[in-house]
Write a protein that binds this DNA or RNA. Sequence first.
DNA 1: ATATCAATTCGAAGCGCTTCGACGCGGCAG
DNA 2: CTGCCGCGTCGAAGCGCTTCGAATTGATAT
Lengths: 332, 332
Amino acid sequence: MATIEDVAKAAGVSASTVSYVLSGKRSISAPTRRRVEQAIATLGYRPHAGARALASARTEVIGLTIPLRSGIDVPVIMQFAGGVVTRAREHSHDVLLLTQDDLEGLERATNGSMVDALVVMDVEADDARIPILTRSRQPSVLVGLPRDASGLSCVDLDFEAAGRLAAQHLSELGHRQVAMLGAPPEVVDRHTSYVDRVMRGFAEGAPDHGLDAKVVSCPGAPAEVARVVDELLAEAPGTSGLFVHNERALPHVLSSLREAGRSVPGDVSVIALCPEDVALAQQVPMTAIDLPASTIGSLAVDMVMARLDGGQHAETRLLTPVLTTRGSTARH
Amino acid sequence: MATIEDVAKAAGVSASTVSYVLSGKRSISAPTRRRVEQAIATLGYRPHAGARALASARTEVIGLTIPLRSGIDVPVIMQFAGGVVTRAREHSHDVLLLTQDDLEGLERATNGSMVDALVVMDVEADDARIPILTRSRQPSVLVGLPRDASGLSCVDLDFEAAGRLAAQHLSELGHRQVAMLGAPPEVVDRHTSYVDRVMRGFAEGAPDHGLDAKVVSCPGAPAEVARVVDELLAEAPGTSGLFVHNERALPHVLSSLREAGRSVPGDVSVIALCPEDVALAQQVPMTAIDLPASTIGSLAVDMVMARLDGGQHAETRLLTPVLTTRGSTARH
DNA sequence: ATATCAATTCGAAGCGCTTCGACGCGGCAG
DNA sequence: CTGCCGCGTCGAAGCGCTTCGAATTGATAT
């Protein structure tokens, strides 16, 4: 591989001059710059990332932790990761992939100076990673809301408001008896922050709007979804409004309802909380609160970058949920 | 951050000794090793990745390119990526995430010595990345089969055999008129290698088994799936066997059939080509050819590692497809 | 007692880059 | 004509680690 010395020789300048051409940190005369750029192009030179990191204490890489475990809504994660990677590139950074529960990996990435900053997904209320992040030199932004976020940036959809919004909307449509189908039990038990928050928002918002509400968790497998729906309809036959926060279960909820002889939206209004494309991919285009995963990913990167080069302070940003009416809800 | 010098001082040895303790490349007496390890633990020392890469010409990172574009079966990719990351960790490597069409990123990663090796997903017949990979110093393995793979390792499910297998199975069940619903048109047009290969396998295998077969591409949106299915049933009303290679469309294919008054598997047998969990998540548990994405990911990493430290030669490995009979097929 | 050897450990060089201080040079004001 | 200033460039130091050859030591062989 060509080194900066090779380029310097080819351009008839010193290595430092090449470096300054690359970084723009000192002024370089137009002819010199041209010669250097020419040499770089013909040699196909790329700076050695390690050498650069060593000398400058900057890696131009950000770490991203993603969950690989069960019960997760995969498309949401992919959209989120896509948003992160895309925006990171726009800030000329690459992305190092870490997995959720690899604490050692986090240490390696931070203390080993593999990354300049971190984006951490799917944060739990008392997340084991938080102490590591707090201690680390690199800024980080959490996606989700831990119990104690002191000194850390957070970003997320305002899931509690989303829960309330769903309740309010069902109320405005004239429903009185409603229910929420949430994440699978195993996810609920982990107390991943957003899961808790939606449920709380819905459960607390419903009575405020005069609703009689049930909240149940819901597995993803078709047979189990059917069972949950059947049980629900048996216990509360008057249920006419449903709020579903579970991508995998969503299609099966719709077919279970149909199978139970309840039409959507004729007999039952259904509101989903999911990405737009998922809402549109159902048998009935869903009235839904958008889960703007890609946007959140981009935003997370913007925030972490601002802290990197702006010295910006830690902040928490919650996006206001937006509900779009489509074909799965009707006045009651 | 603590450096290797700090550790050396704390342990009363030289830096090189610490290095040898870490790498195990020279023998170290038990007491010395103990003191060094103790110092490392109390200081929380982690070697600086950049410095290490610079001195050793090894980064302990592998690059992974994943597709973020439209029409892609997201869960498959996630499973694949999960397999790669998990196995990479077992080889004590981290993973740098690159996106499909970021050629500049590929150059940066390889020529810039950011990675030791590469795993490239979703390879097209004439993939623009192949010349870069061939030129690069690092070994790489492609997931998929390009037209010309000289000097590069490849691994994939034997999609052509999968297509043939589906045809054979439908034939054995007694079907005579069958059809394949493939990937969305935009994906087919890209000539992603596996898409072409399944279609070819099915189209060529069907006549061998005395089948009358149609092959059509299929969008993912519910309304469009319904249209495609209806058209198919109109043109070839005798169709009693279906082979579906399109995860997103799969649930809608099943409901479209039902809506058209054809029961599964009573009137129509349906075979899917998808991961096992997707097959099980349908309304009817699907007879399916498994797409072992996670396994392929692990294997890709194993292959690339073998080349890294074994000097192993480039090789191509195609996994034999396995069909599992479940509830969506019946004798005809 | 001396030569030899294996087992450990050390010192120094060097990986490729950034960055700081210094230098040379032409143009300007005095 | 002299002194300054600023622009453009260079040289050297140093980032933290690995690795090679060499040095030290105690033990074994002669």
